[in-house]
Design a protein around this nucleic acid. Structure first.
Length: 575
RNA sequence: CGGGGUGUAGCGCAGUCUGGUAGCGCAUCUGGUUUGGGACCAGAGGGUCGGGGGUUCGAAUCCCUCCACCCCGACCA
């Protein structure tokens, strides 16, 4: 490709509304342009990268034995009513009506469509297992789209759905997909990690997320290398801290704490360590009435864990100030475990401390020296809190520095689930087993955020000059920067010859034949992140040398003109 | 959904408080001088000042209203 025939819409200045580096660079490099909140145009440079990712995903999926299909983006409401998600899915589902007033939605995911399709196509266990995928535009009406294509409303996703005779078959395909995803992200040249994950609204049980590791990631991941444990913080198990609960040593006493309502205020006012306080949070129960959740003052509630408790309403609903006043007689900030009169569920660590401080259920008053079993009933114990850096790994058999969790951040680019029979049951997807008996097929589902991968790769690979693509994703492998293309016949003919030879050899070459100053051409090539560059000018040709530079390296090297083709063929990865 | 903020040329911004013919830098186009890391000179084009309504002799500026976009939050006990 020649730049004279290619839309290189680079920007010198950073658009004001782009917050994170990948969004800024995608705009500056002329990869994307915004059409509406969370909706983007892909320009030629961007689309070339997107297609690279798509192709790698497609190749690896095909290798795994999955079959490509294409389902409609617009789906009839009936299918969603059948699965029960028309009501459940909420605001993220973009609902539409056709001219007859019939309800449709723009598909945010395709479990309904595929299950309905396959239930008609697959009749016999002999056709199983089967795995179908597509690469397609999805729409999820995010309440807050942001970060460019990282969290867009319209985006490209690879989604796959597998069907099985039994759980064993599902597990086997799940393992194959785990392997396939590992291959995909390895081929893309990304630093990533597979982590145990919550299954969220899609449903099902076993699940792993694949995260590209980056500080700007929206997810926190707890990792312990020693025990090979990695889990999304949403899910990561928090173990009890500090052995058996100590015996009480203090007596229960009431202290006035006027206007002290937060943990920080109370602990400072009473000159006590934060971890000797507990906070009592009131939420709605499954039945009418409130349930009290007790955490150590320095810990935070993990709402997803709380929602899994059978007595707690899901989704979690916080008690309002009025409800708290009515049930307890005080405002939030002075609630405690003594004579509370509500069901109490305590986090493992909160249940394991003695002589703690909590509210006295009267505004401006707290208790000190509170002990479970003596001053209030023993609580029900449940894992309620978010893990924090330095917690002991749930898989560890002893407490040591090696068994401590570290927390890193990641961008979720892949997610694999074992769905079980949630959808096949609802939509009656059965096949006959070898006894001629109808069996509801267990399902798996496997997603890759194709457009998000593009952004996450930039988060991981950039410098102050721009993007540094891994070879596998680069819009072009090589850029030829001539010095004096329009002035020097010799420069022009050498450039054209190398360009033609390499292009014929299947390498994607960008020849910068604009009549620009070298500084502009260098800046553009660096900004759009082409991994390999050669510079051809009269000066070096006089020495029969051609300058080569890798985008990642600070220095260039001179290559004899006669060896340049061989040199480049060796270094530049063919697409 | 709650809170905050911003809408002026393709991009980045000033002008709004205190009403009086719409500006700057970058980009674009023309001519010239340049040409190894975002050049210089001269000239040119480009704006319903987010939309609608109102006040006024006169509105980018004041008032009302709608819209779009961005940020923060959704942990308060």
């Amino acid at each position: 490709m020649r730049t004279s025939n290619f839309l290189l819409s680079t920007l010198k200045e950073t658009p004001a509304d782009a917050e994170i580096i990948s969004h800024q660079l995608m705009l500056r490099a002329g990869m994307i342009r915004k059409v509406a909140a969370g909706v983007y145009n892909w320009l030629p440079v961007g689309l070339r990268v997107l297609r690279k990712v798509e192709n790698i995903v497609r190749e690896e999926m095909n290798k795994s034995g999955a079959q490509e299909v294409l389902m409609p983006a617009v789906q009839p409401a009936e299918l969603w009513q059948e699965s029960g998600r028309w009501e459940m899915y909420g605001g993220e589902l973009l609902r539409l009506q056709d001219r007859h007033g019939r309800d449709f939605c723009f598909g945010p995911t395709h479990e309904e469509v595929i299950t309905s399709l396959i239930s008609n196509e697959i009749r016999s266990y002999k056709q199983l297992p089967a795995n179908f995928y597509q690469i397609q535009t999805k729409f999820r009406d995010e309440r807050r789209p942001r970060f460019g294509v990282m969290r867009a409303r319209e985006f490209i996703m690879k989604d796959a759905y597998s069907f099985h005779l039994d759980q064993e078959g599902l597990q086997a395909t799940y393992d194959v997909m785990y392997e396939t995803y590992t291959n995909i992200f390895t081929r893309l040249g990304l630093g990533f990690r597979a982590v145990e994950a919550d299954t969220g609204s899609i449903g099902g049980n076993t699940s792993h997320e694949f995260h590209v590791l980056a500080d700007s990631g929206e997810d926190a991941i707890a990792v312990c290398d020693k025990y090979e444990y990695a889990a999304n913080v949403e899910l990561a198990e928090a173990v009890t801290i500090g052995g058996d609960r100590p015996n009480p040593t203090k007596t229960l006493s009431k202290v006035d704490t006027p206007d002290q309502t937060t943990i920080a205020q109370v602990s400072e006012f009473l000159t006590a360590e934060v971890k000797t306080t507990v906070k009592t949070l009131l939420v709605h129960g499954v039945e009418d009435g409130l349930v009290a959740l007790v955490l150590r003052g320095d810990h935070e509630l993990n709402e997803l864990k709380a929602e899994k408790h059978p007595l707690i309403a899901s989704p979690l609903v916080w008690a309002s100030d009025e409800e708290i006043k009515e049930a307890v007689g005080c405002m939030p900030g002075s609630i405690g475990t003594v004579e509370l009169g509500l069901t109490v569920i305590a986090d493992r660590s909160a249940a394991n401390i003695a002589d703690y401080i909590c509210g006295a259920n009267t505004d401006g008053v707290h208790y000190t020296g509170v002990n479970w079993g003596r001053d209030c009933p023993e609580p029900e114990i449940f894992d309620l809190r978010k893990v924090v850096e330095g917690d002991i790994c749930a898989r560890a058999d002893n407490e040591s520095d090696e068994s401590k969790l570290s927390i890193t951040r990641g961008i979720e680019v892949g997610h694999i689930f074992q769905l079980g029979t949630k959808y096949s049951e609802a939509m009656n997807a059965t096949c006959l087993d070898n006894n001629g008996k109808a069996v509801v097929m267990p399902m798996g589902c496997y997603g890759v955020g194709v457009s998000r991968i593009v952004a996450s790769a930039i988060e991981q690979n950039h410098d102050d000059r721009g993007i540094i693509w891994p070879d596998s994703m680069a819009p072009f492998q090589l850029v030829i920067t001539p010095i004096g293309y329009k002035k020097s016949e010799r420069v022009k003919s050498v450039c054209d010859e190398i360009y033609n030879t390499l292009t014929k050899a299947g390498i994607e070459v960008l020849l910068d034949d604009r009549n620009e100053r070298p500084g502009i051409m260098f800046a553009d090539a660096d900004l759009i992140g082409i991994p390999h560059r050669i510079v051809i000018g009269e000066k070096s040709l006089a020495k029969e040398q051609i300058e080569y530079k890798n985008r990642r390296s600070d220095t260039s090297e001179d290559v004899p003109q006669n060896d340049i083709i061989e040199f480049l063929m060796e270094r530049v990865v063919k697409s």
